[in-house]
Amino acid sequence: MSLSKEAQTELTRVAVFAGQILHQHGAESRLIEQTTQRIGLALGADNIELSVSPDAIVITSLSDGHCVTTTRRCFDRGINMQMVCEVQRICVMAEKQLLDVRDVKKRLKRLIPFKHNRWLVVLMIGFSCASFSHFFGGDRAAYWVTFVAAALAMILRQELAHRHHNPFVNFAAAAFVATTITSFGVIFEAGENPQIAMAASVLLLVPGFPLINSVSDMLKGHINMGIARWVFATLLAISVSIGIVASMTLVGVSGWTS
């Protein structure tokens, strides 16, 4: 199939836009690479080559020996699996030739990140950390202390994220709040083992998704993406522990290393 220069440029833009959405919403590198290539091929390119790096993607489309190359910066917009699902669906539909370039572009432009109701998320995260306190062997008092601390920390995390604060500052602040609240549980001797609440209430700040993505990226050959995600997750964990240590020093309760 022969494409005009304009058609090839348009195709490249649509494909890179799909890749950019996937990158910004926390998809694995292999998925970004494959989906972008599949969309490009489905829309009529002879070949798509792309390079995924931690903050940008570069894509080249080939058609009749002509190359079109373009680069997009990818800022982190938070993990959103719904966006990943939608892009994947558009890719499958384009492959079945149900959509042409204009439809794909229109559908990609129309995507709005879906967010769960924030108070429901706060409630569920509160119960999640409370369940972790149960796994660590905590009693009912530890359960409820963890619930309150984790829910309040989650509210703070959402508020700061909504105001586009730096994630490291955000995580340190949330860890500080959670640890301070659970320290009062230790001071007032709530239940048998109130230290458990201190450990469980900060687990909402574990960067689980970046860590898993990091290892699977490295396994599948995207070493530089894997290292970038690993370093990001480690820095988040360090800022969480600095928040915890700051709170323990201020309140004077030690619950982790003793």
């Binding site: 699902c85 860590l211 993505n213 290393t257």
Partner: peptide, 24 residues
């Protein structure tokens, strides 16, 4: 895509407590 189900399902097994203890 697979990560939609799989990553959330293994989140309860992530060793977060060990990681924070090491960092602290």
């Amino acid at each position: 895509p697979r990560p939609v189900f799989t990553v959330a399902s293994v989140i309860p097994m992530i060793p977060g407590s060990y990681a924070f203890t090491a960092m602290i």
